[in-house]
Simulated assay, not measured.
Amino acid sequence: MSTIHRIHPTAIVDPQAELDSSVEVGPYSIIGPNVRIGAGTVVGPHVVIEGHTTIGKNNKFFQFGSIGAAPQDKKWQGEPTRLEIGNGNTIREFVTFNLGTAQDEGVTRLGDDNWISAYVHLAHDCQVGSHTIFSNNAQLAGHVHVGDHAILSGYAGVHQFCKIGAHAFIGMYTSLTQDVPPFVLVSGNPAGQRGVNIEGLKRRGFTREQIDGIRAAYKLLYRSGLTLEEAKTALQEEEGRSPAAAADIRALREFLGLATRGIVR
């Protein structure tokens, strides 16, 4: 199929935009001059992609999305900040992904192979990893970091500057104002810890020994009565006692060292 047939005649694509010849653009979509889109990506109808936005390969954008619009931040003064989207993402209806701001790294990022459901909002300067799932209406305020394989259930709301660790699970309608360590399941308003995301770990191929080590680490952090600093020391010792899970426990301990809003605890 020729390039002209891949772009619907009602779509408006700026001549300066850089689209691979295999990119498809649906009816009434608008693509701005500073947009670059990689091979195999499909842009559905009524999608607006603007700003300095770079999109990788084999993404699927469903209808009515707003991608790369100005940050919803009064400090933004038109600086040439960016949005970067990786490969293989599924991005459903009515999502809003904003550019970064000069007050942070200047870029909002979404990694690879993420499943982003309808009405999801990624605010300015969010850094989302790969293989995550965002259910309908999950909302990230500015500067939020989300690790690989994390899951946000429907209507979960995350306060600005929060960090969510890899393999964490955020329950439906959760109001999150603190950081969530890797592997931990939280829910509620305000959010509270509910255990280890065991089902998610099983689905991703974690061994019984790994899961047992992560559960032991969770107990040290949440059920031992230790202070946070004491728990960090105990976790370092636990690495030696759980060789199968040593790397996972180390990742948990390192996350605690980077937490800036306190952890859900």
Rank of each mutant, 00 (worst) to 15 (best):
S2E: 11
P9A: 08
I12A: 11
D14S: 14
E24V: 10
S29G: 05
I30G: 00
P33R: 10
A39E: 15
T41W: 06
G44T: 10
P45D: 10
V47S: 01
G51I: 07
G51S: 02
H52I: 07
G56H: 09
F62S: 00
S66E: 01
A69W: 06
D73P: 01
R82T: 06
N87D: 15
I91D: 05
E93D: 11
V95I: 15
N98Q: 15
L99K: 07
L110H: 04
L110T: 05
W115P: 00
A118G: 13
V120N: 04
V120A: 02
H124Y: 03
C126A: 01
V128I: 14
A138C: 00
Q139D: 10
G142S: 01
H145F: 07
F161W: 11
F161D: 03
H167W: 15
A168S: 13
M172C: 05
S175V: 14
V184N: 06
N197Y: 04
I198S: 03
Q210G: 01
Q210W: 05
R215H: 07
R215W: 02
R215N: 11
A216F: 02
S224G: 11
L226F: 13
T227Y: 03
L228Q: 13
G240I: 05
A251D: 01
L258F: 09
A259C: 04
G262W: 10
